[in-house]
């Protein structure tokens, strides 16, 4: 057991990551933040639209797209990967819709069939062409965020910006944030009330497919760092935590970003301490934050419930008791 959980040393866990020469951990933290923030922003809308599990499905099923793009482009060409992932994401949506509309299989089962099949196909392709693809099964599961600082540095006019994946992820996050701000009202209305959106002249299905495309792009750019499954947590956790704290969308979006920053930094320290997958640790940290908020809310929920019970126990109370308890 002692071997499993390394001794805690404040110096090693909290100081060294930031003082280490080369600043590798800073890039990891930044990468974690950008991934979680971008996923969280998109995820908020998935939660609002009750499509959290569509996010789950898409994040699994982009895998064959990425692998085929790898095989065809014969390199880590990000453009090819984006195209492959978008195609796979689109295919998933089409398969789910086809199964659901053309047979009596319900939507939940259709989702389950579509994404597991595509994911299985992706894993098989990886195993068959292991020598040609710079990917392995573990990477698919939890990514290689620790290798991010080792990537080539992007330079613009001699000025080093940072490792390529971080710069790319930052750009994606920025674009997602911009889109969310620009199309705030369209996203809000079509998520809340599609019928109203149509009457206001907002093309709901366009917004839907736009959101799906955004989801695919976010998932694929996060893929190398956190893999295909942990990304589900990053899609759902920030939004779920935020929606426990606030019911107003702008505040929720802000809280999402805050949750992303906190879970990235805390997760980094946790991962360094336990010497485990840092991406996994970031999700665990995010889960911790969620539980904290949830438990705090639980106290309130319990208080309310027990006050309800007082009403129930008083015999002959009924209406008058309910009225009394409200005053």
């Amino acid at each position: 057991m002692n071997e499993l959980i390394p001794a805690f040393s404040f110096q090693r866990v909290f100081v060294e990551p930031w003082t280490q020469p080369g600043g590798g951990f800073i890039w990891i933290a930044l990468m974690g933040f950008f991934v979680t923030a971008a996923c969280g922003l998109v995820g908020n809308y998935l939660i609002l639209r009750r499509m959290a599990l569509v996010g789950d499905a898409i994040s699994h099923s982009v895998l064959p797209g990425i692998v085929i793009a790898f095989l065809l482009a014969k390199s880590r060409n990000s453009m090819a990967m984006f195209v492959g992932a978008l195609a796979a994401g689109g295919l998933t949506t089409v398969i789910i819709e086809t199964i659901h509309k053309r047979s009596r299989v319900k939507q939940d089962a259709a989702i389950g069939i579509a994404f597991t099949s595509l994911f299985a196909l992706g894993v098989i392709l990886i195993s068959l062409f292991a020598s040609k693809v710079d990917l392995d099964q573990e990477c698919v599961l939890y990514g290689e965020i620790a290798f991010v600082p080792l990537e080539e540095i992007v330079r613009i006019g001699g000025l080093g910006l940072g490792p390529l994946p971080v710069v790319r992820m930052a750009a994606v996050t920025l674009v997602v944030a911009l889109l969310v701000i620009l199309f705030y009202k369209e996203l809000l209305v079509s998520s809340f009330d599609p019928a109203l959106a149509v009457s206001l002249g907002i093309n709901s299905s366009l917004v839907h497919y736009g959101l799906m495309a955004m989801l695919s792009v976010v998932v694929v750019s996060a893929f190398e760092a956190v893999g295909a499954i942990l990304v589900v947590a990053m899609l759902i956790l920030p939004g779920a935590t935020a929606s426990l704290l606030s019911q107003r969308l702008p505040l929720m979006l802000g809280l999402t970003v805050l949750h992303a920053a906190l879970s990235a930094v805390l997760g980094l320290h946790l991962g360094v301490w336990l010497n485990c997958s840092i991406a996994g640790a970031m999700v665990v940290a995010g889960t911790g934050l969620f539980c904290l908020v949830w438990v705090a809310g639980l106290f309130k929920w319990y208080a309310v419930r027990s006050s309800n019970r007082v009403v129930g126990n008083k015999s002959g109370g009924g209406v008058s008791d309910l009225l009394n308890s409200s005053t």
Binding site: M51, A52, D56, V232, A233, I236, L237, A279, V284, F290
Partner: peptide, 17 residues
Amino acid sequence: DTALGLVLASFFAVGIC
């Protein structure tokens, strides 16, 4: 759906660690 996704991914992350 959110609760399912939340539990799925968090438990999985703990497992991965």
